[in-house]
Design a protein around this nucleic acid. Structure first.
Lengths: 107, 107
DNA sequence: ACTCTAAATATGCATACATATACATATGCA
DNA sequence: TGCATATGTATATGTATGCATATTTAGAGT
C-alpha cells in the first residue's frame, strides 16, 4: 500500500539531495553536510526523519555514522507508479505481463 | 531531470487522493469533492496547482470542468526510480537490459 | 431575444498549523 | 582535548483550509 509519507520525504529539497547523495553508497554525516549546504544540525535531523521513515539505516564506524539507503521505499514507489503506466502505454502486451510477474516476485 | 516539485505535488494528502481518483479517468470537480472530503474551494485550488505542475489538464464540458491526468510526471518518476533499482536488484541481467531499452524508447 | 435563477467552479482573504532552519549545547569516541 | 554527531529551543516561512463572493454556463419562462 502507498502512503503519501514516502513522497513527503522526497518533497523536501534538502532531503532529496541527501537521498541523491546516498545513491552512490553510504556516506558519513560530514560528507552529506558538504553535499547539501545547510547546517550540520539540520542534516542530522533530516537523517533522523529519513531513518524513521525507513529510507536510511545507520552504521557507526568509530565516531562517524555512516548512512545508507534502504530499498523498500523505492520499491514502493516503483510499484505505485507502475499502476500509472497505463497513462502512457496504451495496451498490455506480453512484456508488461512479464513486468507484472517480476513485480510479484518481491512479495 | 528530476525536480522535487514532482514529489511536492504527491506529498500533500489531498492532492494525492485527487490523483488517485483521476487514475480511473477524467472527473468533474464535483466528483472529486465527494472523493476528497475538503471544501470545493480547496479542491479547485489543488487542481490549479496540479495543472501548473503539469499533472492534470482541464476540458470544459458545459458548466463542468473535466480534469484528467497527464502522463509526463509519472513517466518522470518512473525514470527517476529506475536509477534506484540497483538497490534491490543485485545484477543487470538480460531482462533488466530490456527494461533499460524500453525506458529509452520514451526519449 | 431577454431576464432570472440555479448549478458548477474559481478566487480573495484571513487563519492556523506544520516544519525547515540556525544557534548553542550536549553526548560520544579517539 | 579535539572531532563528529545529535538534540533543545526559538523563529520564520510556507501553505492547506474554510468562508464568502465572483464568474460562468444552462435552462425556463415570458
Amino acid at each position: 500500500m502507498m502512503q503519501q509519507n514516502v513522497f513527503n520525504m522526497l518533497a523536501d529539497p534538502t532531503r532529496f539531495r541527501i537521498v541523491e547523495a546516498l545513491v552512490g553508497g553510504e556516506q558519513a554525516v560530514g560528507d552529506l553536510v558538504r553535499a547539501v549546504d545547510i547546517d550540520q544540525s539540520g542534516v542530522s535531523r533530516h537523517l533522523r526523519i529519513l531513518g524513521e521513515a525507513g529510507f536510511v539505516v545507520m552504521r557507526p564506524e568509530g565516531a562517524r555514522r555512516l548512512y545508507s539507503l534502504r530499498p523498500e521505499p523505492f520499491q514502493a514507489i516503483d510499484d505505485w507508479v507502475a499502476s500509472y503506466r497505463k497513462l502512457w502505454e496504451g495496451r498490455l502486451d506480453r512484456f508488461d505481463a512479464a513486468l507484472a510477474r517480476k513485480s510479484e516476485e518481491r512479495k
